[in-house]
Design a protein around this nucleic acid. Structure first.
Lengths: 205, 205
DNA sequence: TCTAACGTGATACTCAGTGTCAGTCGCGAC
DNA sequence: GTCGCGACTGACACTGAGTATCACGTTAGA
């Protein structure tokens, strides 16, 4: 699924990329994203600036490339979950898959999210990625729903709303240091679409 | 409300800014946003590169500064509409105010939206602006709703979802060349939150 | 073992965006 | 009227991201 590396060259590339990202990430956390230059990074990693730039197209990608598979994860989860017929439930479950994919090391993810949150450039690029995922996810959501309704605005809106939930929830979660339960947070966020739409003293906890 | 210019300096600045933007916009439409440099723009406008950069912090702002007041427009509309108690209805009406503010010249707006759509950098920056509006809008939405619930995730989600609706609807609308009715499009989009959440052959044409 | 493809470093380049400096202009105070 | 202050302007220099090219070394694979 996630770029299964085959062939020694591919393996090597993957490993180098990971190492460069690791070194760079430390620098970013230490000094701040904007203050660090490619020259700094390449020096710290012991490669030339040219080489560093070959592994990551932009400085943002050095941090955000870990999110690249999320779009596919969500889309695949939607496919696997044909049983459920409710759009919102399916999206909620798909997001659960996304967070499960992301949360390997709690501490690391919290740190990354913190870095992103306080760096406008990273926020912007992440939103861009999110927008790129949307068409694919919409297609999967519609495939099993009613006969393809040409340009169903509804599906687009629901997918967009669900993806916003993802970031809002992750923001909440990282603000709590990774203590809160992501499943409950997702439920609380999705309650926005199911409760009466007027005031409500929101759900549990 | 929207930067009422007072004093000759302010008037002048406002006018120059508008003129520079006008000249630049033509260039962008003609050649493509990425192909045009500040050097081109300043030459075309008959001012120095320094001066041009003083009026617009970034190249994106040359196009997108017209959207700056939208956040306040939405927030103010929410304030004015205390009668309505339903979150979704209030947001929908506030978005109506936003589009009314934006649609002065149909043809011009369609052109701008087209340019934005086919320029990733502009899309990204616009999303960033949208994210900046969110906190203010959330505050206005909550002010009249239930006693401030500390960190009501629900309000955040609803505002985020509503803002996504705005862009999805504007995208639809500009794709139709500005023919479709924006009110109906908004209704169709907001139906995503009120219909049974399963399949539905969506509302009126 | 040979060779073609690939990774690398060095270098040069374009362009966005920042900062500085000196000259100019508008405007109110005296 | 003119003096001085603050804002606007153009010229210039600078940093840093991202692109492109070239020559060299290494390695995969026949």
């Amino acid at each position: 699924m996630s770029a299964t590396p085959v062939g020694t060259r591919e393996i090597s590339r993957h490993a180098v990329r990971a190492e460069l990202a690791r070194v760079a990430f430390n620098r970013f956390c230490l000094t701040g994203f904007d203050q660090v230059t490619f020259a700094d990074l390449s020096e710290a990693a012991g490669v030339s600036r040219s080489t560093f730039l070959r592994y990551f197209g932009t400085k943002e990608d050095v941090v955000l490339f870990v999110f690249d598979p999320v779009g596919d994860v969500i889309a695949d989860a939607l496919d696997a979950d044909r049983a459920n017929q409710d759009d919102w439930s399916r999206l909620r479950n798909a997001l659960e898959s996304a967070v499960t994919f992301l949360v390997r090391d709690v501490q690391e993810l919290v740190t990354i999210l913190g870095l992103i949150e306080q760096t406008p450039a990273l926020c912007a690029r992440l939103r861009e990625k999110q927008a790129e995922w949307r068409p694919g996810i919409v297609a999967r959501l519609q495939k099993t729903t009613s006969s393809t309704d040409g340009s169903s605005v509804i599906a687009h809106v629901r997918v967009a709303a669900a993806l916003e939930c993802l970031w809002i929830v992750l923001g909440q979660w990282s603000a709590s240091g990774g203590d809160e339960d992501l499943g409950e947070l997702l439920d609380a966020a999705f309650a926005a679409f199911s409760t009466p739409a007027c005031q409500q003293t929101h759900a549990p906890s």
